[in-house]
Every structure is written in C-alpha cells, then in structure tokens.
Nucleic acid binder design. Structure first.
Lengths: 221, 221
DNA sequence: CTACAGGACATACCTGCGTATAGGTCGCGC
DNA sequence: GCGCGACCTATACGCAGGTATGTCCTGTAG
C-alpha cells in the first residue's frame, strides 16, 4: 500500500522522496511537506515494502524512521547496502541514542533528525540527499557506458589494453605476451575503435575510471 | 605482528594519539590505555594548546572531549578543518546529544563515543582513525611529489601539457597555440623529463591525480 | 653590459604508431 | 561441412613522436 500521490505529471528528472514510516499521520505530514515544495513522493509503511519496490530511476532519497515494524531503519540501511542500492538516507527518530546515530552516519546516512523535526531541517536534508544521489547517478551513468564497451572486449584485447595503458611500447607488450609487434598494433587499433577512444590519453582515463588493475603501475615519489 | 613492546624508542612511523581533555584523571587513564598497546601519546588540556602545537609528522589521531574549556570540541574540529589539518578525530562525551553527534560525524569525525567508554571501543576507534590518517598521508605524499614537479614547469610547458594530455596530436597543439610542430615536440620532451614520466600514460595519470583542468576533455556516454 | 633562462624555430634523422592487404590456424554452433 | 569469430602473422607504407644540433630573440638579474 503505497499512498501514491502525484501532484503533477512527473518528468524524467524530477526527484522523488521515498518515505518509510509506520505511522500514517507522519507519512501524510511528510508527504504534504514535500509536495508543497514540488517534490515527488512515495510512501511506505514498512521496510519490506521498500525492499520489494524497485528503486526509482530518478534522483531520490529515503526518509526513514528508525523504529519500524519488523526490521529497524538501520537494518533496512544495511540490507539496501548489501543489495547494492545506494539511495541516500535521512533518518528520523523519536527516541534515538548516540550509538545509533553514529552507526547510521558511519554507514553513510545523510542526516539523522530528531522528532519533532523542523520542516526546514527536513527540506535541507532532503535537498542535500537528492543532490548527492544526482551526483552519484551522473557518475554511474558516465562510467557505465565505458564499462559496457570494456565488456565487449575479448580476453586478448583486455590483456593488451592493460599493458598499453600501463605505458608499455608495442614491442614490450608483444614480448610480454609472446606476440609479434604487428599483432599488438592491430589489437590496439581494435581496442581504440571498440572503446570509442580517440587518443591514448582517452583510453588511459577510461581505464582509470573503470579501476582496471594495472599490471605495471607506478607514480613514484 | 605490531604487538612487540617498545620501551621508549620512537621510530619514524610509530603512530601517535593526541588526547585533549581538561580532566587530568581522564587524560591519565587514556594515556595509560594507549601506552599499554604501544601507541605514542601526547596529552593536552585545551583546544588552544593543540592549535599551537605543530601537527605530528607521523600517522596520528585526536581523541577529543566535546566539552572543553573555552572552545568546544566541535569548534576545534572546525578550526582544524579551516587550518587545513585533517587529523582524524574521535569524540568522547558525557552529555552529548544527537544533533551534536550528527554535526561531528558530518564534519568527518571517525567516531563519537559516550562515557563511560569501553576500552575496546576506544582502541578500535583509534585504530580505524590511525589507519585512515595513514592512508591520507600516503596519498598526500605520492601526489605532492608530482605536484612539486608540476610547479617546476614553465607557463608554456603547462599549456602544452594540458593539451597533450587532452589527447591532441602535436600538430593540433601547435595550431591551438600558434606554434610550429617542432616546438611542441621539444616542449613535450622537456615536460616528460621534468615530470619524470616514462610514458604518455604516466603523464595522463599524473595530471588526473593533480586535477589539471582539461581544456578539451570528454568521456562520452 | 653580460650572462643566463625561456621561448621559438629549422633541418635532419630515427623510432614508434597505425592501417591496409593478405594471409593462416583454431574451436564452436547450426 | 560451413560460416563465424578469435587469434595470430607478414609485407609495405605513411604519418606521428622524439632527439640532436644550431640559430635567433627577449627580458631580466647581477
């Protein structure tokens, strides 16, 4: 039961705030607050509902009561992390303590607000959270294109890629792999085309973004 | 492995814990705790003393009571940040509240412990903090060598560096700057020598580490 | 004034990079 | 068996990268 309330037609990049609270009046109050500033809202009554729902495709954040039926907010945070879902989280609590707060913040929470929550504090926190998610998504998107192109490389092409971006000359790569230099040159061309790199500098930056293990890396003091 | 008892001889990489607390008995207790596991210790009675003391050259962390004479622990944290000193901080508090905790953690504190502090919690926090500082120092060190070499470049050399690492060919760089291609080649060689780069890939990674603004960068989706 | 550093360029030469063309061997799926 | 894709190589050619040597100009610190 998602008190799905959409004020206007949501466009592709409108952020969504997802509220998880077992108290209906709290859900309603928060929903009103966020809608009043033009934010999209989805409300849930339990942790399980959120885990079942698919994460939104637009910048979003979670507003989470620590005390939830079944698993606690902290458990949900841990579960989401395990499921590799990185939506920024804002906690609210009526009876929180410091160890709880520390644990939540260490696990990457954006904020941890105590009831009664001042509207402005909540809106500030949400804005920061949305912004963080937007950045993460942008980063993810730009890397995912590169990653999928990398996946399309054959094993041999990857071998050569890693040696080439390590700074070895074609002949050195050839020696390393027991190949003829001409073979390396040809692979190199294939790699540049497949990766869509228009220069070696590009290629190096792509591998850096992907975190490709460098066979022979340095950067000495 | 690191457990062996060291009498007094401090070697170049032994971590130091700096304690700031106005309560002498607390200072003594913490000092004993840390020394019992072989950590170096410096104790201070106020925030001002720490700001005056020069930061240690070895991996270290701060253990900070929130309540201090004069400025609070949070103020000291802010002052240190402003002074560009990034020693990891562990807070201890007797009467902390959640907003305080949140503020401290948002500002990068490693942990926030409540009195009475369990010895093991403190030692765990300190170890994590020291480890964090060690990483930061390693990173800083490896970048600072590159940075100082970059500083040694002339203005012209930097122009060419940024265009070359953007992936332009010598002739394009020449056109961009209104130079002859041969001139660019010569500069390029000078740059490689001055920067200690043994390949273009190296050079690209160095500029990435330095965050050199790319005149013509991309990484398309 | 002189010495020196930085900047710019030419000629010559060598090495590295990259593509085209033209082959060849495997192993796999239909 | 046939096609396909990967992997591998050879010859040949052209362009890009890089160094050496030498020349010239300019600003500036001693």
């Amino acid at each position: 039961m998602t008190d799905h309330a959409k004020p206007t037609r949501a466009s592709a990049d409108d952020p969504i705030v997802r509220i998880v609270d077992d108290d209906p009046s709290m859900r309603r109050a928060l929903t009103n607050l966020f809608q009043s500033v033009g934010l999209g809202v989805e409300a849930f009554g339990s942790a399980a509902e959120v885990m079942d729902a698919k994460p939104p495709a637009v910048p979003s954040c979670l507003v989470l009561d620590i005390r939830l039926p079944g698993s606690s907010g902290l458990d949900l945070q841990a579960d989401l992390a395990k499921a590799n879902i990185h939506t920024p989280i804002i906690f609210i609590t009526g009876h929180g303590d410091i160890p709880m707060t520390v644990r939540a913040m260490k696990s990457g929470a954006v904020d941890f607000l105590t009831k009664p929550v001042r509207d402005q504090d909540m809106l500030d926190a949400v804005q920061a959270a949305i912004e963080r998610d937007r950045k993460r998504r942008d980063e993810e998107k730009s890397v995912s294109g590169v990653r999928s192109r990398f996946e399309s490389l054959s094993a041999r092409q990857r071998d050569i890629l890693s040696l080439v971006t390590a700074g070895l000359m074609n002949k050195q790569v050839a020696a390393e792999l027991g190949l003829a230099e001409i073979t390396v040159k040809i692979y190199r061309g294939q790699i540049m085309r497949k990766m869509g790199a228009k220069s070696l500098a590009d290629l190096v930056r792509m591998t850096e973004a992907l975190g490709i293990p460098r066979t022979k890396g340095h950067l000495q003091t």
